[in-house]
Computed example of a mutant assay.
Amino acid sequence: MPVIDITAYVRDGSASERAEVARRIDDAARTVGFMQIVGHAIPGAVIEEFTAAMDAFFALPLAAKTEYRTPPAINRGYSPPKSESLSLSLGVESATRMNDFFEAFNVGVSGADYPGLELPAEDYAENLWPTELPQFSTAIQNYLSQAARVARTLTTIFADALELPTGFFEAFTDHSLDVLRMNNYALPPGTVDLDGDLTGMGEHTDYGIVTVLWADQAPGLQVLDAEGVWHDVQPADGALLVNLGDLMARWTNEQWLSTLHRVKPPIIDGTIQRRRSAAYFHDGNIDAVIQTLPSCIGDGSKYEPVTVAEHIRAKLAGSRGLQSNTNAEREAARVLAATDRY
């Protein structure tokens, strides 16, 4: 997995420096669909306060955390262990047997962040802030704003890499449906069975445009290559993991990859090693229509046009509502083909 320094775009580098970054991003997007990003300029203090806030929430008693659950269609609040199945977002029926034991807490942009627009309250829901932790919201929002900046820097690079007009993606993301999901894989003893089927997070592709992931330097994340082999991935010092989502694969007619990945919890001496991660999902405007870029159509598009709303809601109905997604035929075929090669 390539490590790419994006300083040239963060610090206003020269045209040649930017061109080299865009070239490397394009190569990673076409061959892996994942990359490690350094030079993102998120201050260390922001990350430290953010991870401390995550720790404080996940350390709360389960009864307190479950007070912040929301209905499946509302992508906010707390998700307890074994309440989701990420593989069902691909429409894979056998995924109901998966043991997705992670717990998570979601926040995101709300309708109030885009005054003057009449946005669906279900999609742009208000956040739930734990009353037990008065400093939590500040630390989380400080990191969220930094991750949002990085995501938008990346779409600027994407436009250059794909030889699109400058600012091409802005029209699709000026009221983007963005969510920050904080994950915890360290559970109290006795809450899970340490058997061969244990899965922290089932195989899936991400739903939107691009994902910016902070993660502990601990094993667990695995990425599937083109030959059907799973590879362990751990972030380099100071790096963020970045991967493309389904909408970018649709835009580029799969010239850029939305790569299958999963989390297998590391079991050491009969216990699960602690692992935390936080994924910032940059998903685009709810009313944006995603269709194959003219330069990527080739012999024909693999996908019909779809709105971000249609795509994301079907995905969430699978992962959070445990309803098999019937609108992901190509994605389902990919995961089933990969399953044959485990």
Rank of each mutant, 00 (worst) to 15 (best):
S85Y: 06
D195Q: 11
A288T: 03
T31Y: 01
Q141M: 12
D269W: 14
P120Q: 02
R313F: 05
G200E: 05
F158G: 04
A22G: 08
D216V: 06
H175I: 09
R334A: 14
A28S: 04
T166V: 15
M182F: 02
A22W: 04
N142P: 05
E84Y: 06
G108E: 02
L316Y: 08
N327V: 01
E118D: 15
R149I: 07
P80S: 14
T155K: 03
G13V: 02
L90R: 11
V263E: 09
L213W: 00
D197C: 00
R274G: 15
E118R: 12
E310G: 11
S301P: 09
D283P: 00
A28Q: 00
Y342R: 15
N253F: 12
E67I: 01
A22Y: 03
I286Y: 13
E20G: 03
V107L: 04
E67Q: 09
S324Y: 00
D232Q: 11
E48A: 15
S94H: 05
F281I: 01
D174R: 11
A41G: 09
Q146M: 13
A53F: 14
Q323E: 12
G208M: 00
S85L: 07
F169D: 08
G33A: 12
E122N: 12
S83I: 14
E254R: 10
T155Y: 03
G321R: 04
D5Y: 07
F58P: 02
A63N: 07
N99Q: 10
G318N: 00
V107I: 13
T205V: 03
T211V: 05
D100V: 05
I42R: 05
A22R: 08
Y303E: 08
A73P: 00
G202T: 03
N325A: 03
G111L: 08
A56N: 06
G238D: 11
D287R: 08
D160W: 08
G196N: 08
R18T: 11
N106V: 13
L244E: 00
D193I: 07
R18W: 12
G116F: 05
F105P: 03
P71W: 06
F169V: 09
A186C: 03
Y68Q: 00
